[in-house]
Amino acid sequence: MTWREDLRYLVLGDGQADRIVPPSGFTARLTVFAAAAMAFLAVFALALALASNRLAHRWGAELAGSSTIRIVAPETQLGQQTEAALGILETTPGVAFARALTPDEQRSLLAPWFGRDVDLQALPVPQLIEVIEEEGFDPAGLRLRLAAEVPGAVLDDHGRWRGPLLASANRLRGLGWLSTVLLAASVAAMVSLAAQASLAANAQVIAVLRLVGATDRYIAQAFVRRFTLRALGGGVLGTLAGGVAVASLPAPPESVGFLEGLGFAGADWLLTLCIPLLCAVVAFAATKTAAHRALKRLA
């Protein structure tokens, strides 16, 4: 007998063999309930993991790949130092593109604070150089060269922002997956307990089956199929409920960047299909282990 036959039996069943285990009340309800509750929670854990994933990507993409150089120098040297910095950037590996911001662009950056018509000449505003990075960009090396040749240049590679933001997004994603694993473990523990209770309550059934020559495998698979199908059913119910709950979360306003992500989009919904399957797989493994252990003990 192979796992292929196991799977065949699991899906198709066997009229007579399925009925050898008496329908039992509380272990059935416990399994369905546990699977449904865990699946419901798993929908949120999955939503959290996916949202953090999106957030990490967005923050990463927005801030990565570009740096800024500020040139702070007296009015008379500003142009010269900017030229020097651009010259260095031209020969620096890992720099795809670099350009000094035009006065207009600088003005629009300052507009929120000083209004549209600010006179740049009258303010000690640094000149900004936008740097687009590519493979092999080395901020530390560039900083050294700038320090040697352009005394007024300060390189900001956004690492200060990006690091902690990415770390927290990754942490959130990790928590989402950890919750999923913990939920799966809880399903395993509950189903395992329910299966053990069912096996213990059916010691008489097992004795009769042994008497007529049933192998452990035959006895175990009847229990395994029951619990797997119950967990699958509970998982479907819980996932549906969780999906409805997530879909009906009120949409937050555009500006609230974080909450914006908590929900499923497009293909994400397909991932929720994995939750009932996970319930079934976990229940299958838990019941199989419990059954074989119990049958060994009863031998």
């Binding site: 007579q16 009925r19 050898i20 008496p22 008489q204 059934v205 009769v208 007529v212 020559g213």
Partner: peptide, 15 residues
Amino acid sequence: SFLDHLSVADNIRLP
């Protein structure tokens, strides 16, 4: 001893 939830016929054909 039998499987009390199955009919006599089902019990007899259990083997």
